[in-house]
Computed example of a mutant assay.
Amino acid sequence: MPATILLTGANGFLGSHVARELLARNYHVRAFVRPGSDRKALLSGASSLPIEFAEGDILNAPDLRRAAKGCAAVIHVAANTQVNPARSADIWAVNKTGTENVIAAVRAENLRRLVYVGTANVFGFGTKEQPGTEKLPYTGAVYGLDYMDSKVAATQLVRDAAHNHDVPALSVHPSFLLGPLDVKPTSGAMLLAIAKRNVPGYPVGGKNYVHVRDAAVATVNALTMGRIGQSYILGHENLTYREAFTLMAEVAGVRPPRFELPPNVAHWYGRFSDWKARLTGRPGLVNVPMTLIANDGHYFSSQKAIDELKLPQTHIRQAIEEAYAWFREAGYLLGRAA
């Protein structure tokens, strides 16, 4: 009888890859999803993946307790990743209170392991020469994003549960995910914008990129690998925005963005977008925190995850190629989704 893994956020970009990786290893997947939520990411051809669905609200502790019953472990991927608007009580509710409820379910059902999925941005970033690691403290509070701040709080909850309450938990922290099956799309929105030549310039900063499938492999590995109470950054290549946008454009077969956006120009564009959002009541494409982040280099090392979770390191060019191939097949590059 295969072990049952409760997977929250199974219908998201990373979650759908984690579901596939679990199935490939003969686990039984119980996907915790909201009633009526979009499950297109869990389709394989014309059919759904062979998984069990447990519907519920992550803010309702009894729902999670029922879903966790009979499971061996939980992989908690579900999160509110909204960054625009920058502040929202809903973000804190899902990311912090939701994680509290997951931890409570793991304790109540005496499960063997909890793998919490955070973000690399809860750690201090570094330069290309000296990238950030799990040892560097959080520096992102200056941006004023509830997403980052709430994920820091959730990571601390998991760490406290492991160290002080005997919960067999550890956390993995992906950087910027690229690859196929980005149904929404999320991070793939940048790939589409590049392909459609809607990006005139590039900011001065940069970030770390990882193939979504590599992150899924390491996340599933964390069910049996890694150390309780530890955190692991899941990333690969550190690229400036100029380098990343040029690579994306090359794969897409279009001219890359040509102009560097000075930090002050990007900042004032963010201010204008915030003003317009307040006037219209609709969030703009960017906001001030997003422009501040784009002006910094969010570079990380994943050596710890490579050593302890056997994190694969697929070249980012391949991730971009697979993403574009999937977007073309699904019709996104024609202005419609199949």
Rank of each mutant, 00 (worst) to 15 (best):
I103S: 01
Q303G: 15
G12T: 10
T314L: 09
R30N: 06
T99K: 04
I228G: 03
K40R: 13
T81C: 06
K96H: 12
G270H: 11
S44H: 01
E134F: 00
P35Y: 01
T219D: 05
G118F: 13
R39W: 00
V220R: 06
A141T: 14
A10S: 11
N287R: 09
L177P: 11
L49R: 00
P35T: 03
V94L: 04
L114A: 08
L111N: 15
P180T: 08
H315G: 11
S301L: 09
V33E: 09
L64R: 12
E100G: 01
L192A: 06
E21F: 07
V251H: 13
V212W: 15
I306N: 11
W275V: 08
F53C: 00
F272P: 05
D307P: 00
G226Q: 02
K184G: 00
G229Q: 15
G45P: 13
A305G: 04
V172W: 12
L157S: 01
A31N: 12
H298N: 10
R317Q: 15
F125Y: 13
F272N: 10
A154F: 11
L14G: 05
P131W: 04
N84G: 03
E321K: 10
P2V: 00
G205Q: 07
L7W: 11
K310N: 06
L111V: 11
L192T: 02
L192Q: 12
A104Y: 08
H315S: 14
N287C: 03
S171Q: 14
V102P: 07
R65W: 03
A61V: 05
R242A: 01
L234I: 08
A153V: 14
P62T: 10
E321S: 10
G229V: 13
G281C: 04
R20V: 04
S47R: 08
I51K: 07
F259N: 07
A54G: 12
A325Q: 13
M290C: 02
E55F: 14
L178F: 15
L292C: 06
I316F: 11
K310Y: 02
L334V: 04
L247W: 00
V29H: 04
H17I: 01
I194P: 01
N110K: 13
N60M: 03
A73M: 12
F123I: 04
R258Q: 14
A193E: 07
R271Q: 08
L334C: 00
K184C: 01
A222T: 12
A330Q: 15
S273P: 05
G56Q: 12
L247I: 03
A189I: 06
R39H: 02
L22D: 08
N208Y: 05
A161E: 05
A266D: 00
I51Y: 05
